[in-house]
């Protein structure tokens, strides 16, 4: 990477200890030693199945929860070490959009109150025209028709537009978007994604795009990070991940994602994985994927594979990725 990354996540680990001091439930290692960078203007997609640790990474980046170990460096500084004032300043450039905009928008506030809040906190007094501008930017025109209404008076798609408008109020540099279109219908989802793409082209914002929908990821992301049970198993440029997935889990994930094309569905090679995802409180020994992996060998249950570069920009964590068929799902 030639430019400095806007975000660096370094050896991030997050362990949740449930229950009290004498609790017998084992701790959950939600994220286990994950590292990645995001460049300015770049979208990195974080994919993987339920419970693999995607949201936890987003929450640590947003400072909503502390990491057990590791660092998050945003725009050159480690958020954990900044003093309060600097942290506040930095945080205006780091925003989040959630899956359920209903949960993230205060139900008792009008759109004007919701959208002016970032300006007021930043000490900007003449915010009314900027609030109206934000609404125009996210396609809610004429804005005068919307500013006095409350969140419950909007559809899911409109609420997500308001959440996006709020995230873009103060020139964000990175937005963590956690399943931000998963709750929306196909036609509304397309509207929101189009909006997010346009805003990225206009502002050079970076996205950490958390999603389990590989169709959406292929068209939104520049690079893709694939997670399984708290571990990064593969990371690389989007077209390499989709055209030449190297990890058997990535291959299975791709082969399991149905595409809207019956002919393809009939002819594509399908990898049906055995069993369910193991519990993250008792991750399998060695490679965490070995219990479901179609090419697992004895070594896989004994030694954990490390994330190694196959090519400079495409590391993979698998002992036998040379044996995994890259064309598996085509």
């Amino acid at each position: 990477m030639t430019t400095a990354p806007i975000l660096s996540v370094e050896s991030l680990t997050k362990t949740y200890r449930s229950g009290g001091l004498f609790s017998t439930t084992p701790p959950v290692q939600a994220v286990a030693g994950v590292s990645f960078d995001i460049a300015p203007g770049e979208t990195l997609a974080l994919v993987g199945e339920s419970g693999c640790g995607k949201s936890t990474i987003g929450r640590v980046i947003m400072n909503l929860t502390d990491p057990t170990s590791g660092h998050v460096v945003f725009d050159g500084s480690d958020l954990a070490t900044l003093d309060a004032k600097a942290a506040l300043e930095t945080k205006t450039h780091l925003q989040m959009i959630f899956q359920d905009p209903f949960g993230s928008l205060n139900p008792r506030k009008t759109v004007r109150q919701i959208l002016s809040q970032p300006f007021r906190v930043a000490g900007i007094s003449n915010w009314e025209p900027r609030v109206l501008d934000l609404l125009r930017v996210v396609g809610m025109t004429p804005p005068e028709r919307f500013v006095n209404r409350m969140p419950h008076e909007f559809s899911g798609g409109q609420r997500q537009r308001i959440a996006i408008a709020r995230a873009f109020a103060l020139q964000p540099k990175l937005i963590v978007a956690d399943e931000c279109v998963s709750a929306l219908d196909v036609s509304v989802r397309a509207q929101i994604l189009k909006l997010m793409k346009r805003l990225q082209q206009e502002t050079q914002v970076s996205y950490l795009f958390i999603s389990h929908d590989l169709g959406v990821v292929r068209s939104m992301a520049h690079r893709v990070a694939v997670m399984y049970l708290g571990r990064l198993v593969e990371i690389g440029p989007v077209e390499q991940i989709f055209n030449a997935p190297a990890h058997p889990y990535t291959q299975a994930l791709l082969s399991a994602s149905p595409v809207p094309d019956p002919e393809r569905e009939r002819t594509k090679r399908r990898i049906i994985l055995r069993g369910d995802i193991p519990s993250p409180s008792r991750p399998p020994s060695g490679c965490r994927f070995h219990t479901r992996c179609p090419i697992a060998r004895p070594l896989c249950s004994e030694r954990e594979p490390i994330l190694e570069a196959r090519s400079a920009d495409h590391p993979v964590a698998c002992h036998f990725s040379d044996l995994a068929k890259a064309d598996a799902w085509t």
Partner: peptide, 20 residues
């Protein structure tokens, strides 16, 4: 069909039906 994003092809221009 035009608005669905597919895992087997990347689209740079996204299409969306307007309205709800």
């Amino acid at each position: 069909l035009a608005s669905i994003l597919r895992a087997d092809e990347r689209r740079d221009e996204l299409y969306a039906l307007d309205g709800t």
